[in-house]
Design a protein around this nucleic acid. Sequence first.
RNA 1: GGCGCCAUCGUCUAUCGGCUAGGACACGUGGUUCUCAUCCACGUAAGAGGGGUUCGACUCCCCUUGGCGCUACCA
Length: 503
Amino acid sequence: MDNPFQKTYPTEAMERVRVRFAPSPTGFLHIGGLRSALYNELFARHHQGDFILRIEDTDRTRFVEGAVENLCRSLEACGVIPNEGVWLDKKGNVMQRGDHGPYIQSERQEKHRAYADELVKIGKAYHCFCTQKRLETLREEQQASGKPTMYDGHCRAVPHEEAEGRIKNGEGYVIRLKLPKQGSVTVWDLIRDDISFEWALIDDQVIIKSDGFPTYHLAATCDDHDMEISHVIRGEEWLPSAPKHLFIYEAFGWKPPKFAHLPLLLNSDRSKLSKRQGDVAVEDYLKKGYLPEALLNFVALLGWNPSGEKEVYTHEELTAQFDITKVNKAGAVLNVEKLDWLNAQYLRTMPTEKYLTLMHPFVAEKTDDGSFADRCLLLIRDRLTKPQDVDELTTFFFRDHLDYSKAPLTWKTQSREEAKERLEALREIISSMNEGTTLNAMEIETAIKNRIAEKGWGNGDTLWPMRVALSGQEKSPGPFELAATYGKKRALERLEDAISSLS
RNA sequence: GGCGCCAUCGUCUAUCGGCUAGGACACGUGGUUCUCAUCCACGUAAGAGGGGUUCGACUCCCCUUGGCGCUACCA
């Protein structure tokens, strides 16, 4: 009854949901960007709408070669795929699709220009001839006298004809919004409800720079309108400029979209997530071997959750449950340990075939024996957090000989003679076993446990030497599994090595 | 400085006025066990402070404090 979102949320009747992720191509896809993209995508899919990728490259000084391709690849790797806008074809070329193009902002410059001129014409914007120098001095003065630093409206009063003349004379200029000087404006946000701002405190924003390019404020707003964007879901850093955007919609008599400003992702010290403190690039996480599904799951739950006690969600489940109004207002600290845990969950529960296919590249160079490699991978599955851990966990499998100086072959206070005696017995048991193609861990266990019982030995004084003989490690998978994984021949070679090292 | 946003375990969060404040990660203890890991069980741990409103506030309102964002011809 008193839910403010019932105003018109989630979508007005018959309205087509169209949302966009609009990054600027300054390098790589930021993990926070991935979350923004995901929330947009989830919202769109949930409401059977469109998810558009638009590239905001109006700042030519910040453009990075290859960044667009990079962005697309990271999104695709994570399965957050736009159905409209910029995409990469099979050869990796940047392409565009949809009837609302172009989707690369720099290609829309003429439209932006026309909109800006229109705003000037209807008295909602004006040409400003103030030099950088003047603006600097102004700012310094304001700072010195403790006043808010903002444009003083110096060129607001320049008559149209004079402005035309000065432009004709080649004088440099920008176009600024002619914002109201009094009253207030209220932005309605799906996550934060109503937020009010005093017009008097908002700067006359530059919408066309002296290089003729539009700024974000004009370009994004006009493009959102042209592309019939219904909901603008973006980072919280845009909240303070939302009134300017609203002003443009109203100036043109356009119906504004609904806004949802997402909370920021934070470093562990609660500052805005930065490169300085760990990885922020999606590609870096992927390179480290984190699974896209895990990363997506992780990022989705940073600032939102479906309020059950479930932790692991598929993309489909996220889509079905996603509710933009349930997104948290507070920023969220990135907790890599939880990502590790999630990743491990995925590694353990995915189909075995998929697991092996995924992991194979990490051991492929170490052996030609594919079946042996698979057995090794299966054996370490429970001890894996990320694929890159594979190396550390498997190297001993593929060594010709193990270095037994690193871990004692003797258990606790056991004598070398006794350890050797046990290993010789084990060698005899295993060599008498019927191998087939591989040994079976259960059979080995039964045979060895029988012998232990028969002789009155202890588990520790038999199994420890065996396990270390096979692994060369203090910590490793169990001895029976190791023997089975090696196969009869290799297992016996290892035992032989260990026995001679005890002689 | 100005404007805005925010505030539950160390971290991510549940709670839409009734709470013995729930879950997950991390951490600790115990069990299984030759080791480690897995797995299972258990445990430590939170409503920033102060005022209201109310029979009743973690939940609503105000103030304070703290954190963050914006304050560019960057997005």
